[in-house]
């Protein structure tokens, strides 16, 4: 179980919304919460003040939910400072908001979000907020594939957030389109084609059962990214929680990167969970 959660706040307003997921997770896990803002040098004073106000709001919200919370404000290079903070405070999970640059640069190259997700010595939840008015999420969409690293920790975060919001969880998979060579009209059912995915889904459901959340399975054919965003829009999910990409740069160049595509096109808020296998 997570014992210490960090919410990294930055000068953008969506990081405040992203931090609310950290508050919810901390409340559900009974973890302590650190709200941290590292002001890069040269940030205008009015912006620092508005972030201070955001920290105060979040502090009050967390306190109202009986979450042991501390708020830290420092200056310096954000990635280095946050890394130091994670080590020093034994943080298990850090919530980091994406910035606009994460969407405009391919494969997150040289973005703060990428650097944080790669270098923080803890699990990272990279949050993209497109709808700041719907942080309390009633319908969570959890796309899964055949191999899920740190399955238990993935289920842990989903379970905590679902529990915190009283949400229903939809486990989702976009099976590859495959037809029988000579009997093309009928596609091969996913249960037959990818039994491993079904097994993983069932394991995931078993792990979620202890959080007493309602779960269901859904499949939608098509390219994974398009299938995920379409399912989110059709079934009006308000949060997608998915794992990070395991594709390398070359594979992404050749056949695309579904995680990056979902990050760009998501119709609802999105958490990309990069578990390190901590504290389950």
């Amino acid at each position: 179980m997570y014992r210490h959660i960090l919410a990294a706040i930055n000068e953008h307003s969506n990081s405040e919304a992203a931090a609310r997921y950290a508050v919810a997770a901390a409340a559900a896990a009974g973890a302590s919460l650190t709200l941290a803002f590292v002001a890069p040098p040269g940030l205008p004073l009015e912006v620092v003040r508005s972030v201070e106000a955001a920290l105060e709001r979040l502090f009050l919200e967390a306190s109202a939910q009986k979450v042991p919370v501390q708020s830290l404000l420092s200056t310096g290079e954000p990635v280095r400072q946050l890394k130091h903070l994670v080590r020093e405070q034994h943080v298990d999970l850090a919530f980091v908001a994406t910035r606009r640059e994460d969407l405009s640069r391919r494969y997150f190259t040289r973005t703060i979000a990428r650097r944080l997700s790669l270098t923080l010595p803890c699990s990272v939840a990279l949050v993209r907020v497109v709808h700041p008015g719907r942080v309390i999420s009633r319908h969570l969409l959890v796309p899964l594939r055949g191999t899920i690293p740190h399955l238990e920790e993935r289920a842990l975060l989903v379970g905590l957030l679902a529990q915190a919001f009283g949400a229903r969880v939809t486990l989702f998979h976009a099976p590859r389109r495959l037809e029988r060579f000579f009997r093309g009209a009928g596609e091969v059912p996913v249960t037959e084609r990818e039994p491993g995915v079904i097994r993983r889904m069932e394991e995931f459901m078993t792990l979620l059962a202890r959080f007493q959340v309602e779960t269901r399975q859904r499949f939608r054919r098509g390219r994974p990214a398009a299938a995920i965003t379409t399912e989110a829009a059709v079934s009006r999910h308000d949060l997608i929680i998915m794992g990070g990409s395991t594709r390398g740069l070359l594979a992404s160049l050749v056949s695309g990167n579904p995680v990056e595509e979902v990050l760009r096109e998501t119709p609802c808020n999105l958490i990309i969970h990069l578990p390190r296998g901590f504290g389950v």
Partner: peptide, 28 residues
């Protein structure tokens, strides 16, 4: 509270443009 493609209207646009129809029966 939400703008652009994050609005409910944007979701209609998303579905309209994003639903990729599969092969038609004849194509199959």
């Amino acid at each position: 509270v939400a703008t652009g493609m994050a609005t409910e209207f944007g979701k209609i646009a998303h579905l309209t443009a994003g639903v990729e129809p599969g092969l038609s029966p004849l194509q199959r």
